[in-house]
């Protein structure tokens, strides 16, 4: 596939993965991933642990370097620049510039513990985009209200429950006005009763038209909110399609056995 074609597709394609491989030393975690995420869709990645879904997600914002294949976000190559047939590695500053547009939410929240909820949300706009503190504070307040935590603005992460921390983490990612949001098992570290609040925020976000890639074990969320779903196992895409079809009528034997265990 030539660069021209991918550029033409970019109007509707947010993420395009072509034969992406990733190894950690001798262990090959991704063995050729081909998939396409459309703008505005909620794209769910499911699969057993160790199947490479989190690794793939981390490749999208270049937290991991891919070993082979091509990965495009919004029509631009991730981590590299292409001149003719040669690839040039991007400088750290250029990588950072591209990450501004991609929000990420982690399984273990990774809020900054030495800052209040409000300061967590303000940090990147002020430090990266150079937004004034007053403006950032106002926006952060709005975002915390959106995730239902306006009254927790002055609390430190250690004073918040897991579900509240994760919602602050979502607000923190949204503060950069990303065009793509990555969710890495956002509810896996939460008590069951706290999962609902986080999923509500994500559902609300999906309705607003945000492009979202969600690695999840919440099959109910995938079926209800997801537009596309991919089942990964052993570093390859086993089955993909509309969540309702894949989850209720899996074609592949490995998908069937996985779903029979988790549903």
């Amino acid at each position: 596939m030539t660069a021209n074609v991918t550029k033409a597709d970019s109007a509707t394609t947010m993420v395009k993965s072509e034969g992406v491989h990733k190894s950690f030393g001798p262990i090959e975690v991704l063995k050729g991933i081909d998939l396409e995420v459309k703008s505005g869709e909620v794209f769910c990645l499911i699969g057993p642990s160790g199947s490479g879904k989190s690794t793939f997600l981390r490749c999208i914002n270049h937290l991991e370097k891919i070993n082979a294949g091509r990965l495009y976000v919004d029509g631009e190559l991730v981590g590299y620049r292409q001149h003719g047939d040669k690839l040039y590695e991007l400088r750290d500053r250029e990588v950072a510039l591209k990450r501004r547009d991609i929000g990420m939410v982690f399984q273990r929240f990774n809020l900054f513990p030495h800052m209040t909820a409000l300061e967590n949300v303000m940090e990147a706009p002020v430090q990266v985009k150079g937004v004034s503190r007053a403006q950032a504070r106002e926006r952060a307040g709005q975002l915390l209200e959106r995730v239902g935590l306006a009254d927790k603005a002055k609390n430190y992460p250690s004073q918040l429950s897991g579900g509240q921390q994760q919602r602050v983490a979502i607000a923190r990612a949204l503060a950069m006005d990303p065009k793509l949001m990555l969710f890495d098992e956002p509810t896996s570290a939460l008590d069951p009763e706290l999962v609902g609040d986080v999923l509500d925020v994500m559902r609300d976000l999906a309705e607003s038209g945000m492009t979202m890639i969600v690695v999840t074990h919440e099959m109910g969320f995938a079926r209800e909110v997801g537009d596309s779903l991919v089942f990964m196992d052993g570093g390859v895409v086993v089955e993909s399609g509309h969540p309702r079809d894949v989850l209720t009528n899996p074609q592949h034997e490995r998908t069937q056995s996985f779903l029979s265990k988790v549903l």
Binding site: N61, L63, D92, R93, A96, L97, R99, R100, I102, G103, M104, F106, R108, N110, L111, F112, E123, A124, Q127, V128, A169, R172, A173, M176
Partner: peptide, 22 residues
Amino acid sequence: DEGQTEASHALGMSHSKTLRRI
């Protein structure tokens, strides 16, 4: 925790800002 550096990088913060602020 390494997750702190990752979260900071994911927000688009540079190496030196991550070191200084986080």
